[in-house]
Each structure stands twice: as C-alpha cells, then as structure tokens.
Design a protein around this nucleic acid. Structure first.
Lengths: 216, 216
DNA sequence: GCAAGTTTACATTCATGTATGTATGCCTGT
DNA sequence: ACAGGCATACATACATGAATGTAAACTTGC
C-alpha cells in the first residue's frame, strides 16, 4: 500500500534509520547497499530515496539522533544551586558520557563511527570526527585553563597537555571498548580510569602516600 | 614487457605494496579497486593477482612491512649494561613508538589502519586490531604489575587501570593525530603527554608542589 | 622448452540514480 | 459533507558503470 498518513511516514523514516544502524554495524557502511537497508526496514529503495538524498544524507541523519556535544554533557551535570570546580564538572561530564555511550543506540552508532566506516567514502568521516574533536577540545581546554588559573590543578601540568591527555584517553577507551564490548565492563573500568586521571592532576591532598619501598 | 628476472619480480611486488599504501590512503580501502593499485604501480591487475590472492592478502602483506609489537619496542630501548625500572622501559618504549610512527611509511599505514578501512569489509580489521591490542596489553600489564610489586608506582593505582590508561591515551593520540598530522606536532605534544603520565603515577619525589592557591 | 611473470579478454555480479507508475491521504470549494 | 484534484509516499523498472575472479594468450628468463 503505497501512501500513508504523515505520522506513518515519519515512522518509516525512523524505521529506515534503525535499519541503517543494524546493517551498517553488520556489514560496514561502504558495503551496505541502500537496498539492504530498505529490506531490513521492510521497504524498498524507493522509500529510502524519498526520505534521504543518498547514503551520505541518511548517514548524517542517523548521527543526528545520538549527538552528545561536551557543552551539553556539561549542562546535564551542572548543579544550579552551587557551581562546581571546573575539573569536577569535567569529571562528571566524562562519567555521564560513559553512561550515555552504553545505551544501545549510542553504542551502535558510535561503533559505526569508529569501526564501520572509512575515510574518503560516501561520508567525509574525517572532517566529521575533526569537527567533533575540535568542539570538544575547545570547551574542554577552557575548563583546564580555568583550573590552572584557580590552582585547582597541579601547576606544572599545562592545560593543553592535560586536555589532550583526557581527550586521547577517552577517545582511545571508546575506540578500544567498542571494538568488542563483551571483553570488559566499561561501566567499571571507565570510571576508575577517569577518577584516577583527575585525582592525579589535582593538587596534593593527603595522598601521595606510596611508602618509599626499599626491597631489592 | 611481461616477464622479468626474479629480483625484478620482487621489485614489482614492493611497488604494488607502495602503490597500495598511496591509493588506500587516498580513497579508502573498500573504494580502491585492484585496477587502481595496479595502474599506480605501472602494472595491470594481472600482476596483482599473481603476487597476491586478493585485496585482503595484499592488505596484510602491506601491514607486515610496518609492524611494531611492544616487545620489540621494549627490546629496542633496553640497556644491556644496567636494566631499567619497568615504568622507565615503558616510557622509553612509548617515546620510541612515537618516533617510529612519524616515519612516512609507518604513518601512512597506520593512518590506513585507523581511518581508511572499515569492519566487515575485505579485511577483518576488528580482529586484527584486537590481536594487536591484546598483545600490547599483555606485555604492558606485566610491567605495571612489576612496578606495583616493587613500589615504583603509586600503590593506590591498580596496574590494570594504569595499563588501560596508557593504552587508551596512546591509541587515542594516534587516532587523533593521524586524522590530520598538520594540526599539531606530535613530536612535541606526544612526549609531554607521556612524560606527564609517568611522572604522575610515579611515587612522590620532591614534586606535588602546587601551592594551595587561595584567591577567590 | 618449460615455467614464471604479466597482459588481455570475458563473464558475472551488484550498486547507483533516475524515471516512471500508482495508490492513497489531504485539502479546497461549494 | 463530499467530490475532485493535487501532492505525498512509496514501488518497480531501467540504464549505466564498475569491480571481481578466472581463463587464455603472450613473452621472456633459465
């Protein structure tokens, strides 16, 4: 039955995006044909070409459903009563991002982003990653610089370096974990890594308590 | 001229691999045809099919030219006169890996690995990455555990967590930098990240000297 | 002359974009 | 309120192009 009501049309659009997630994940972006996506959604290619210009357009629409820019993550963890220290905001935002990442859709789409699509293909994935990274770097650096000015992080660590360390660590963790999420529990490992990082770049409170071990 | 001497045949094999690096980098693995690789090397597809079974086979042959397992990196920096502390070995190995990464061929191939090929394609890139990561994780963990036993790292940090932090940081840095190597000098940023990491997980020597800043 | 190395030709498969077909929902005038 | 008409939401068909693997031809070293 060719034509549907407006709401049903929107439903098939979503169904097509769901289908795309599944098939992209299974077969990789470049190897999946629009035919396969359509069939997974119980439609034909005509439906795909109606809702989307081409594969690239569909891909970006798929991404739009799971975007989580750092600014928004920071807003999510903000406490309106009493503002937090910049590093504490970052730490909570990172933990929050980890939680969100584990949601089925976010997990699927980020796996596709990291592992199931390649540069110079239908989608300019490099520029996409770059834009996301730049945005993240910019707002993260602000916090580290503020922490540096207010002495809430160790003075000898440059904000730029701390920023790149955190970004690399987080990105690397995502890349590694998403390769096979059954290998370890990122809900356990992730927070411990993040907490350790922030603890280690914060000014010395009563830790630094490693006894000067003296056995050969 | 069809047929050459044995040495010349080997030369065309290398030429084909060189060509593959260039074209894979330009167009992504799945979008490059064997025809394009052959033409880049001044040959035809027949030559490719003579030397390699298929695209996957060629890909793996390309990788074999740049492998740098952690064990070997550690060997490279070993000092036979006086053995180093485990963390110092790791630090030097990481710095050494950074140097190697910047070589033109290594850089090209690793860029392909991270950005120009996708899962479920001609090559099982996920399993490949996984094997490399597992190997790295295994030998790295040994060092961190030894450091933990000998008190050469802060006792409250679990070896497993430190290991994953370093791996993620390094992997994330590679992933980020290779996306566009013109953006920053990894020969400068990289070592500062690595040194900061190891400095921060080492037992307190006379640092921890951030004055308890007290301005509002 | 035989086999290694390389080219050319061929058959098959498959994805893409577009054009066209078509049935249904929705809106507008009266 | 309902009949016509138009736009919407798809399906089907087609033309094109390109990549793969293999087989057969050729050419030269040993």
């Amino acid at each position: 039955m060719p034509k549907r009501t407006k709401a049903e049309a929107e439903a098939t659009r979503e169904a097509l995006l769901d289908a795309a997630e599944v098939i992209f994940l299974e077969r990789g972006v470049s190897r999946t044909s629009l035919e396969q996506i359509a069939r997974q959604a119980g439609m034909t290619r005509g439906a795909v070409y109606w809702h989307f210009k081409n594969k690239s357009d569909l891909f970006h629409a798929m991404l739009d459903r799971v975007k989580m820019p750092l600014r928004q993550l920071l807003d999510d963890v903000e406490d309106l009563e009493r503002p937090r220290a910049p590093l504490e905001s970052l730490r909570l935002a990172a933990l929050h991002a980890l939680e969100r990442l584990q949601g089925p859709r976010s997990r699927r789409v980020h796996t596709i982003l990291f592992h199931c699509c390649e540069a110079s293909s239908d989608v300019d994935i490099l520029e996409l990653h770059q834009r996301l990274a730049d945005d993240c770097h910019e707002t993260m650096l602000e916090r580290f610089e503020e922490a540096n000015r207010t002495g809430t992080m160790i003075a000898s660590i440059e904000p730029e370096i701390a920023c790149r360390m955190l970004m690399s660590m987080f990105g690397g963790l995502m890349h590694d974990w998403l390769r096979d999420p059954t290998r370890y529990d990122i809900g356990d490992i992730g927070p411990r890594m993040i907490d350790t990082f922030f603890e280690r770049i914060s000014p010395c409170t009563p830790h630094c308590t490693s006894p000067p071990h003296s056995s050969s």
